[in-house]
Computed example of a mutant assay.
Amino acid sequence: MDKFFPIAPMDKTAKLMSGPLMTILAVCTVGLIWLIPYLFSPRGYKVTPEGIIIQLKVSSHFISKNKIKSVKLVGLVKPGGGITWLSGQFGYAGLFTLKSGSMARVYATCWDNMVQIQTDNIDPYLLSPQDPTSFIKSVEELLNHK
């Protein structure tokens, strides 16, 4: 003979935590976790006569041509971990450690065919343009017209 025993009614804390307000806050929090990385993810690169503009969804980052020392294709880069900003959901942006032990400012969507921009700063930039060869050619043309 089976006997069923219902659970006790929720106390005040349980009612508060399972109420509509908490559900809305949880949904909004999850939404922000996805929205913020999307807003600051890399969208493209523009080579202008003044330098390189790294376009993010809501802002941009500028590398002056006067600060660029070199540009080269470095191919596959093995990441370590992200130190600042975002990593993974919609791309990579911010300061990263690399498996080689160095650090880099990464504005990319993949770790294959990376382009390294060395500037006055110690940490290079790593970018992932769709056509790295054309991008490098454009930056070299920019640097030759100083």
Rank of each mutant, 00 (worst) to 15 (best):
G51A: 15
I136A: 06
K46I: 13
K46T: 14
N66H: 15
Q130D: 09
I122S: 10
I52W: 02
V47T: 04
T97A: 10
S138M: 15
K57C: 12
A104P: 05
T84S: 14
K99L: 03
I36Y: 04
M103R: 11
W111Q: 04
A26N: 03
G44Q: 15
K99P: 02
T29F: 01
L143V: 14
W85F: 13
A104W: 07
I36L: 07
I63M: 00
M10P: 01
L95E: 11
K99G: 10
G94W: 05
G44L: 12
G44R: 13
K46M: 06
R43P: 10
M10H: 02
I54P: 13
N113V: 07
A104E: 11
M17G: 05
I53P: 12
Y92H: 12
L127P: 15
D123N: 14
L21K: 08
G88K: 03
V139Q: 00
P79Y: 00
E141G: 00
G44W: 07
S134T: 10
V77H: 04
R105P: 00
L76Q: 10
S18L: 14
Y107A: 04
L126A: 06
D112I: 01
I122D: 05
W34K: 06
Q55N: 13
G82W: 08
T13H: 05
L39S: 04
V47S: 09
P132K: 11
T84A: 13
T133S: 15
